[in-house]
Design a binder for these strands. Structure first.
Lengths: 229, 229
DNA sequence: TTTATTAGTGTAAAATGTACATTAAATTAA
DNA sequence: TTAATTTAATGTACATTTTACACTAATAAA
């Protein structure tokens, strides 16, 4: 019977969270060392089961918070994984979510956490279950998204140098980008505000700081701008 | 307990199928009239529950086949919907899938079916549950996808006129496209084979027929071509 | 042979993308 | 005080792509 609610199978539904961050060293991802079976001691994404009275988006937020202390992180649904043996203990379907966060802003929350740790995306250890697959899927999505619209908002501090933004793009897209072309392209989008302030920490000359102009950004989102680096 | 398999809630997991087709009249979508409760007699997507020993992709194929007789349709996962009350009978999470098919090729299968019917996307009736939402999400995805790579393959007959391909794009993107620019852009992709054959049914002059060059197409997919109409 | 209908074709101007090297500002060391 | 060092900031010429736009070609029917 295709449509009998009473006889239909019920399954475990999980969420897994892929959290991207960025700092001087480049693009990173947040992982936890499992302190429970199966695969205790191995690295994995933050995951947990959906509760009956809960929406997936909320479950993802709750799970992430439980493991990392991170609050109010907006995550986007990535894909739902349902391979029969993806979880060796019991048939579990998992809905993966991903988010971009600013590492500095959230360090306080993370420090008090037990086992969460940032890894460079280029040096991720072997993960449990199908988490490697989820991660590579998420990276692909992030790259794709980056080429469609600016992503810097979430990953950079409030005030940032142009060179940081450039480095962010280079990290995500994993390629070199011509500095002058990058700057003129970004400027042509007209979504940055150049501040009077300079950051003197890394050079004699100092470099101007910028912030995103959230209003202009939102207005332009509607016409979904594409960047072709 | 976040990670106890034994105490975690289990839920009903469904799949819903969004099937796009195209004919002389434009872009269409396949719906069924429900012959069971709830919402009996209303129009809906083809849906059914995931079985315990089944992968989502397979469930989508099975469900579609059950309602329409359609065979071997490759569907792509769209999104997973989990609003608490999306199904009034019981908490059900649904994974939506979508596919593009050639209406003519599959008419034989569909004719013998009871209640499935094609609707122009511009004249879709009110659907049950959150199926309207799924559909509009799918249309958005289709438009997006169309701007990233050619989609004609699946929706057109084996042999087609350039004007059909143009009309397909206009239907999906819901805007007029300049004929000359369209043709030269398509030709520059170098994925069509112009046949010696002409279709004389719609004009005195007759128009050349084309087929897709699957090999060239696949080769180019790797460099994901973007079309900006 | 004229008429009507759809198919098929090209070009010029504008916008965008790309490749590439020098000067500017400030600190530190001589 | 001057020179040397370091990173920041800027512009141009060329190639490519996109856009706007209108007439001729082929054929069948009248």
């Amino acid at each position: 019977m295709l449509n009998s609610y009473s006889t239909a199978d019920k399954v475990l539904l999980a969420v897994d969270c892929i959290i991207f961050g960025f700092d001087e060293e480049g693009l990173k991802i947040l992982l936890i060392k499992r302190d429970f079976e199966p695969e205790k001691g191995k690295w994995s994404l933050m995951g947990g089961f959906l509760k009956k009275e809960e929406v997936l988006d909320t479950a993802a937020i709750r799970v992430l918070n439980t493991y990392t202390g991170l609050q109010d992180i907006y995550m986007e649904q990535l894909y739902t994984y349902s391979e029969i043996d993806r979880d060796p203990v019991e048939r579990t379907i998992s809905v993966a979510y991903y988010a971009l966060i600013n590492i500095e802003n959230h360090n306080a929350e993370l420090i008090q956490n037990y086992h969460a740790k940032w890894f460079s995306v280029s040096e991720v250890p072997k993960l449990i279950f199908d988490h490697d697959n989820m991660l590579s899927h998420a990276i692909r999505r992030l790259r794709y998204r980056t080429s469609m619209r600016p992503v810097g908002f979430e990953l950079l501090p409030e005030k940032f140098k142009m060179s940081q933004l450039l480095k962010l793009y280079e990290s995500i897209l994993d390629k070199e980008i011509d500095k002058r072309n990058f700057i003129s392209k970004i400027n042509s989008l007209d979504i940055l505000i150049k501040l009077d302030e300079k950051d003197m920490t890394s050079s004699r000359k100092g470099s101007y700081l910028y912030t995103f102009d959230k209003e202009k950004y939102d207005a332009k989102l509607l016409n979904h701008f594409a960047l072709n680096f």
